[in-house]
Nucleic acid binder design. Structure first.
Lengths: 346, 346
DNA sequence: GTGAAAGCGCTAACAG
DNA sequence: CTGTTAGCGCTTTCAC
């Protein structure tokens, strides 16, 4: 790999001159010299060494995308589109995206910190834990950072997410407007089944926000949320099913699943139990994942702009990197009700 | 960000000593000194600078994943799982994955070459063009490189793909065994519709390989392929539909779609035309994408191990990076027939 | 056992 | 207009 020095020698000029030519720096260079240099550059296929450059304090044009767990697949209905938005926007800005992950979240954070804190201009944390150490450390060192899909506890860390609370309210209001009064909600959480039963359930941040919206709507209609009408499901399919079944035994007329997957699993349980959707039970989801429209019945849901969340995250991060960032910002992306056929008038 | 020098000063030792301690180098260091250094390292939160290290000729532990076009989404049925396999295997080996893409393939290649050829230890090209300039350049400079899903023209570039030809044969033999004799094939190609009609169709490399397998099987059964029983579809849905319809007018009893998407679109066209699958027409696909089993009817197809292709690609690349690579290797991953309900006895 | 110093490739301040 | 040189943070040879 040819270096500045090689070019300089070949042309009988100094490395400084070569540097000025290749960088189009403001310094005046004799046209003849410039041409000579350019020719040598082309001949030797010279590429500036990104590392040496970075060592001089330049931007690396790389953003690190830190995501929780290598087995939360990229084909996942949330991570996939978010990453797509990130990559599209990064490409637009001619930046590269470095994927940083591990087999546990701790490992992910440690690895990211140990290896790449010097390489990346900034980081996007995808759905980090609220108490993320990595987020705190980076924030304290002033490294550009945006948390996606969760607000971390550490103040000073900007974040972006959809407006989950409003979405929860919208979903519930839709059901209320349809005449439903016994409206159940299904939350999701970290795995609390067999292996770590006993520990308190750790619900997803977003699920909890959506629940707040659900409560907001109920209260606005003068109703108090009934704890019996809330259930939690998680990765374990068996335990989740029985949880869903217990909920249905409470005879709700409508169910708000905190995401489309939860809603869909509810529909499945209904089918097994002979409950018809939407005739006997209305079901609404959240996310509007790619195939929500081809569910049977097509799922009424709250759409969140997943791709745009990714794109906006990059934009926010770049603002920080370039020093144009205002204050800490918690950007909330708009959600909307997508009415399909899984909800009906009571 | 603390540097070696900071630590050295704080401890009243030389940077060399600090370096030896943090790297666990073989040089003997007085336990007391070692401890002092380690303490300072912890206090100052020292992280070695990856760039400075790389400048000394060390591995960067980053692999560049070059993929064609930012709008070929990561949620794509092929790219998604491939990338998943890549990331999983890279993580296993504690390497990071850098996503390199652009808005055109040319741009992607130029950007990757210009900016990142010094940063990455090696590159994975996802479905590059056969005449990729980037591949040639890298191969000539001896940069570790594996082409995924296509063999490039440049000799000396290792590749990995599924055994498309065998898969094409398997699909066709399945149909033949079911008693079919008028077996059509649907290929896919680059967009040759409105905008660039007139230009010769550029078929996908893999589609062509599968077609070879199709021919192999027919000939082994003493039949000569009928050109009228082959059609090409592409991104344009309208033109593709009419192409599919023309094919069906030739009255095949079975269709082999070169991928599941093509097969599925054929089923749709059939439905519109009142042709029942599999009663009137058997349809077989290729890939076994995630939702092939939930098609209506569930699609008989040839499974290719997409995730494993990604994982193997990383393994091959690392062998090159670490100098353990044998010769140029064109690894072919095994495929298998997945029998479902879109094919039936004639 | 430890320190001084060269040098990886590059940029930019300083001298001509 | 161009060359010399210091130094980014690190590793490693050589000398003590």
């Amino acid at each position: 790999m040819a270096t500045l020095k090689d070019i300089a020698q070949k042309c009988g000029v100094s490395t400084a001159t070569v540097s000025y030519v290749v960088n189009n720096s403001p310094r005046q260079v004799l046209p003849a010299t410039r041409e000579k240099v350019l020719k040598a550059v082309a001949e030797l296929g010279y590429q500036p060494n990104a590392y040496a450059r970075a060592l001089k304090g330049f931007r690396t044009q790389v953003i690190g995308v830190v995501f929780p767990h290598v087995t939360v697949p990229l084909t996942n209905v949330y991570f996939g589109p978010v990453l797509e938005g990130i990559v599209a926007q990064a490409t637009e800005r001619r930046m590269a995206t470095m994927l940083l992950t591990g087999f546990t979240w701790e490992e992910t954070e440690q690895g990211a910190e140990r290896e790449f804190s010097g390489i990346c201009d900034g980081f996007l944390l995808i759905a980090p834990r609220r108490d993320s150490q990595f987020a705190s450390d980076l924030a304290k060192s002033g490294v550009p950072l945006v948390s996606v899909g969760t607000q971390v506890a550490e103040p000073g860390v900007s974040s972006i997410d959809s407006d989950n609370r409003t979405g929860g309210r919208l979903a519930t209001e839709h059901l209320l407007a349809l005449g439903h009064r016994r409206i159940a909600m299904i939350l999701t959480g970290e795995d609390v089944s067999p292996s770590n039963s006993g520990k308190p359930v750790k619900h997803n941040w977003s699920a909890l926000e959506r629940q707040h919206g659900y409560w907001d709507a109920l209260r606005a209609w003068g109703m108090e949320p009934d704890p019996n009408l809330t259930a939690t499901i998680w990765h374990d399919p068996v335990a989740s099913r029985s949880s869903a079944r217990r909920l249905l035994n409470q005879r709700p007329t409508a169910v708000f699943g905190c995401n489309d997957g939860a809603a869909y699993r509810t529909v499945e349980v209904c089918r097994e139990s002979g409950i018809r959707v939407p005739e006997d039970l209305s079901v609404i989801g959240f996310d509007d994942i790619a195939n929500a429209a081809s569910f049977d019945p097509p799922l009424t849901t709250i759409r969140q702009p997943i791709f745009e969340i990714g794109a906006n995250a990059v934009e926010m991060l770049c603002a920080q990197i370039e020093g144009r960032a205002q204050e800490v910002e918690h950007r909330l992306m708009p959600v909307e009700l997508i009415q399909r056929r899984s909800t009906a008038h009571i």
